[in-house]
Design a protein around this nucleic acid. Structure first.
Length: 909
RNA sequence: GGUCUGCUAGCUCAGCUGGGAGAGCGCAUGGGUCACAACCAUGAUGUCGUGGGUUCGAGCCCCGCGCAGACCACCA
């Protein structure tokens, strides 16, 4: 009974089984091996709220391809997985759940009970996404899995916070921050998105306190007028010269506010006069500070109006806007309305319009932290791939403002700061203090707020390796090698990891940042929940297999650019897997006898396994030309794939593996070798078996990072030499990456094979043009060009088998060319096919005419180049020589085609 | 307003440091050939957005323009 792959490729038959085998055998475990170099990637931790989506699939596949590649190369490869507590996102989900299931608000439960629910959420849903990662084939070290809010991360967060605080880099201050009324918390600048909304500019008159005309100002947010403390104009603005220093009246409110000058107003914009509301606008806040103005807050945290708004108190900000405008209009203060597109800042979580608010918050002082992070990129310690993203990174850091890190939420790392209720002392400490160091009171209250989620994410590359402890893992695996992420989170995350790492560990957290694009739908739209155009990776895996999905995601893309998710590309990837499957089935079939026992193979040594480690060079005496040709192709691809992988050009590497397997191995080598396998030369069969195993193992290894499951499954059916026969851990995931070998280039054999291939293609073309059935046996007459006889004649066996030719006559004289033939001219030979009664001179005429035209074009092009004085004198000699050789070649071919054409034309007369 | 990306075969996209335009899908023709019809063979299709420039030579480098998109800034 033959022990072979199933008749049809069905990834469901083996993907889960193989993953399980990898995991239980410890194949993903990274050892601290001093003899090997480490290769480390930390996984961007998915949110515990999340479902695996296409973005994760892309991000993780890229990481897995890199990890598997380095592991095969012999590195001690660690891909460290984990998940993120996602402070805001999770809290929102838990609150929603509570509301739906119990009809309660979080305040009804209280902080402690609410946190219990949140941890429960984490327990139930937190593992979901990591299970989904397994479906993708992620080869991460699950034994080192971390969570951004586990004990170690919490320790790291506290340590970092205290360190920054003691250095004066964290401070508490009353400043203008972005407030999300829906989420009920402050946000950092990075968490605010800019959206264009349709809105209006309302022009209102603020009458003069002296009974004069006063001044007209425009605003898009009339409800903030209650917080107005001044009207500002530019010092050079002649129009308002007389009003400066006087007071105007806030309409209907009756309050008097001064007209002041400041450099902020732009005389070109609006009326040139700006109302100043320091409590609700960043620019106004700065004007207020410069001019010593008071701040008047008129909006509550839930976006309703406060008592300053008088009769509008309690109204929502937009309701108030409507009523207030109406009242002002009726009172005659409204001058005009302009419809405008108003850019609005919105919350990145709930898309509510954020309200700038004056508030007590914790901040990280950015100036000193940003500098080393900028330097690191400029010096080249931190390399962006593609390079252009460095510009974005630098721009953000150069423009950065202080980072608001406190959040008015419950789920997250609580700020390690305490207030003494007796003396008011502020205590910031890693360990919970028991009494006030100043007055000794035990009456301490911890700050209610938690930290921005990204504060803990910023420590991820080192907190996961044990920092702040100097653990063995930290010493061996840190700094990490590459961070893989989408360009959409450079600001949130990459930047912050870099400055945090430089501040704490003294080195960049990773030397490379590999930035990828977004996965869009087939129409090029962003995949989103609201559009409902998201595609579930798990469904895709179910239908096409994980390997197909992975291959589709990693090939046909350009680093840093978005990609479209097209079903036909997925199908193509699946078809490729199917092709490999069938080719492998063919190989295995020919390695075994009818009992499924492996037949003898040529060996390079006692333990010969037919893998990349084998010494092919020692066997060249036994190898046939085609064997050497395919080995040289594998060798060439090995170099190319290794190089492109090392430069992160994964798409090019994957494409080369595809071409190698399909076009070179399947279409040519396997077709050629069939003749030998079905023949009766037993010694030669051993050679063929060796080469088949050797080549298949190499291509499987080269493809393994992209398609881990199918390559592992096929691997398990191959013979692995005496030494590995009983090793249950003989997995391809642990194999050796092939190395380029100068001894395997075989230029002479390659020339012979390529000669034969062009003759075969020419004959097949004649067949098709003459509409002769592929099954029809034909004979051929070949006239070799001078000096090329040996090269051409070496191809006899291939030509017979692959072009279905029964007999070939090699002739030396043009006179011996038979009459009734169709012909083709290739470089080095003329091929004639007698077609007897099928002979179609019309078809032949068409073919030759077309070919003549093509060759004329080629000759003209080459001649044109060569007659160019500048080209001859300035182009490199090598290029000129090549061009000359081409010209000669095409001229010869053209002459032959022209001769032949004359013969055919004569026939037709 | 600033920065960046894209514009290549009907569609989706490759094209490394400048040296004769590629793939997949689709299309046409022929083929159940003993690994594979999720296949095989053969073939057709491109003023590489546009106008200049540099160069012996430009899809690739430089400048201008057009169209599409992204990000940052902007909320009088």
């Amino acid at each position: 009974m033959e022990k072979n792959l199933a008749k049809t490729y069905d990834p469901k038959d083996f993907e889960d089984r193989i993953y399980e085998a990898w995991e239980t055998s410890g194949a993903f475990r990274a050892e601290r091996d001093p003899d090997r170099k480490p290769f480390t990637i930390v996984m961007p931790p998915p949110n515990i709220t999340g479902q695996l989506h296409m973005g994760h699939a892309l991000d993780q596949t890229l990481q897995d391809v890199l990890t598997r590649f380095r592991r095969l190369q012999g590195y001690s490869a660690l891909w460290l997985p984990g998940s993120d507590h996602a402070s805001i996102a999770t809290e929102v989900k838990v609150v929603e759940k509570l509301r739906e299931e119990e009809g309660k608000e979080k305040e009804d439960l209280g902080r402690e009970e609410f946190l219990k629910r949140a941890w429960e959420w984490k327990r139930v849903y937190g593992g979901k996404i990591t299970k989904q990662c397994r479906k993708l084939g992620d080869s991460c070290d699950w034994e080192r899995e971390r969570f951004t809010m586990d004990e170690g991360c919490n320790k790291a967060v506290r340590h970092f916070f205290v360190q920054l605080y003691n250095k004066g880099l964290i401070y508490r201050g009353n400043r203008l921050i972005n407030w999300c009324p829906q989420c009920g918390t402050s946000l950092s600048d990075a968490e605010v998105e800019h959206e264009d909304q349709t809105g209006s500019y309302w022009y209102f008159r603020y009458p003069g306190a002296d009974g004069g005309e006063g001044i007209v100002v425009a605003t898009s947010r009339p409800e903030t007028m209650f917080g107005d403390v001044a009207i500002a104009v530019h010092p050079s603005d002649e129009r308002y010269k007389d009003l400066v220093g006087k007071n105007v009246i806030l309409p209907l409110v009756g309050k008097e506010i001064p007209v002041i000058t400041d450099i902020y107003p732009d005389p070109e914009k609006g009326t040139g006069a700006v109302k100043i509301t320091p409590a609700h606008d960043e620019n106004d806040f700065m004007v207020g500070q410069r001019n010593d103005l008071p701040t008047v807050c008129c909006i509550n945290e839930d976006a309703t109006m406060n008592e300053v708004a008088g009769k509008y108190e309690g109204m929502d900000r937009y309701e108030c806007r409507k009523a207030w405008v109406k009242d002002l209009e009726e009172a005659g203060y409204l001058v005009k309305i302009e419809e405008m597109v108003i850019p609005a800042g919105t919350c990145y979580r709930c898309h509510t319009v954020v309200e700038p608010m004056l508030s007590d918050q914790w901040f990280v002082k950015m100036e000193d932290l940003a500098k080393p992070a900028i330097e690191a990129a400029k010096k080249g310690d931190l390399r962006h791939v593609p390079e252009r993203f460095e510009k974005i990174y630098l721009h953000w850091l150069e423009e950065i403002r202080d980072w608001c890190i406190s959040r008015q939420l419950w789920w997250g790392h609580r700020i390690p700061a305490w207030y003494c209720e007796d003396c008011g002392e502020l205590i910031v400490a890693e360990e919970d203090p028991t009494k006030c160091p100043k007055c000794g009171s035990g009456n301490l209250r911890q700050d209610e707020d938690v930290l921005d989620t990204w504060f803990s994410s910023a420590l991820w590359p080192f907190s996961t390796l044990g920092w702040p402890e100097e653990t063995e893992d930290f010493k061996y695996f840190y700094p990490t090698d590459v961070l893989v992420t989408g360009y959409d989170i450079i600001f949130f995350w990459v930047v912050r990891m870099v400055f945090s790492a430089l501040e704490t560990t003294g080195s960049v957290p990773f030397s490379d940042v590999y930035v990828h694009g977004l996965v869009r739908d087939a129409q090029g739209r962003k995949m989103s929940k609201s559009l409902g155009n998201g595609i579930d990776p798990l469904e895709v895996i179910n239908q096409y297999g994980a390997d197909a999905l992975r291959f589709m995601l990693t090939t046909g893309i350009t680093p840093g650019n978005d990609m479209r998710f097209k079903e036909d590309r997925l199908e193509a990837a699946r078809n490729f897997a199917n092709k490999l499957w069938n080719a492998s089935r063919f190989v295995i079939m020919n390695l075994q006898d009818e009992n499924g026992e492996f037949l003898p193979m040529l060996k390079c040594c006692e333990d010969c396994c037919g893998h990349a480690c084998c010494n092919d060079a020692a066997l060249t005496g036994d190898l046939k030309d085609e064997d050497k040709w395919i080995l040289s192709r594998v060798n060439d691809a090995t170099r190319y794939i290794t190089d492109t992988m090392e430069r992160y050009d994964l798409a090019l590497a994957g494409q080369r593996a595809y071409d190698l397997i399909w076009n070179e191995f399947c279409d040519w080598y396997i077709e050629i070798v069939k003749g030998r396998l079905y023949g009766d030369d037993e010694e030669d069969k051993k050679v063929a078996r060796y080469v088949l195993v050797r080549v298949l193992k190499s291509v499987l290894t080269l493809l393994h990072p992209f398609m881990p499951f199918i390559t592992e499954e096929i691997w398990s059916y191959l013979p692995h030499g005496d030494a590995k026969a009983d090793n249950p851990n003989n997995f391809i995931i642990r194999a050796d990456w092939p190395e380029y070998n100068e001894a395997l280039t075989f230029p002479a054999e390659t020339e012979k094979l390529e000669m034969a291939m062009s003759v075969i293609r020419a004959i097949r073309n004649i067949r098709a043009e003459a509409e002769a059935a592929p099954s029809k046996k034909l004979s051929a007459v070949i006239l070799c060009a001078e000096g090329r006889e040996a090269v051409v004649e070496a191809g006899e066996r291939y030509i017979k088998n692959l072009a279905n030719i029964t007999q070939i006559s090699f002739i030396e004289d043009k006179k011996d060319v038979p009459e009734e033939t169709m012909s083709a001219v290739v470089d080095g030979a003329e091929v004639y096919i007698p077609l007897d009664e099928l002979m179609d001179y019309r078809a032949e005429l068409d073919r030759l005419t077309k070919e003549k035209k093509r060759l004329e074009g080629e000759v003209k092009r080459a001649a044109g180049k060569l007659s160019n004085e500048g080209f001859i004198s300035k182009a490199p000699a090598k290029v000129v020589e090549e061009e000359k050789a081409k010209k000669v070649m095409y001229e010869e071919m053209l002459a032959k085609v022209a001769d032949r054409l004359a013969v055919v034309e004569a026939k037709l007369k």
